[in-house]
């Protein structure tokens, strides 16, 4: 299964991921149609703020998922093909035990239907070979999607480059604190 990682340094809090998520989970699957649908399409990623930073909170599709374990009706399960943790709305009681035990706050209640709402990793897009809608929409690449090995490899290379810079004194990689967002964060005193 591919992983969705967040680089909090890069999140500009524009909430493009939230909008793209709701549109992907609408009937029309396009913005202008989605905004007029009732009940309104629900987003499954929530950009929350902490100090001067913002972080898109989304289901991480845990290997040992407490939401699956705690569901009394078998509504929460792992999709055999994609490996994603998904809700079967027909079986969902709306008890929200899943939301209660989720360590991240990644599950919410549908306001009209009272069923659990959560990230399903955009199965329709996956069939077409596309990334999840939130990842595609992110203008700063704060949301990264790929095989765990690839994502970690990228981080390891970046670590190696940083160490290399430290020992060689060469300006190889960007220093933290050098982007406009960093300036804004430091002005806010965080």
């Amino acid at each position: 299964m591919k992983e969705l990682f967040v680089d909090i340094q890069r999140c500009a809090a524009c909430k493009a991921c939230e909008i793209a998520c709701a549109v992907e989970h609408s009937t029309s699957k396009e913005l202008f149609g989605a905004v007029s649908e009732r009940p309104a399409p629900q987003k499954r990623v929530h950009v929350e703020s902490a100090r001067a930073y913002a972080y898109p909170v989304c289901c991480l599709h845990c290997g040992d998922a407490p939401c699956i374990a705690t569901c009394p009706n078998g509504a929460m399960s792992r999709d055999a093909d994609s490996g994603a943790v998904v809700v079967n709305e027909g079986r969902c009681l709306g008890c929200l035990m899943c939301a209660m035990v989720c360590p991240f706050g990644a599950i919410s209640a549908h306001p009209a239907k009272r069923v659990a709402v959560k990230c399903d990793r955009c199965p329709d897009r996956e069939k077409r070979g596309q990334q999840p809608a939130c990842v595609d929409a992110c203008p700063t690449h704060a949301l990264q999607f790929g095989d765990e090995e690839d994502l970690m490899k990228e981080k390891r290379l970046s670590t190696a480059a940083r160490v290399a810079q430290a020992v060689s004194g060469a300006a190889v990689v960007q220093q933290p604190g050098s982007t406009p967002l960093d300036t804004l964060r430091s002005l806010r005193g965080c």
Partner: peptide
């Protein structure tokens, strides 16, 4: 949080 593009 409010949009960083707007703020910048």
């Amino acid at each position: 949080p409010q949009c960083g593009f707007g703020e910048l």
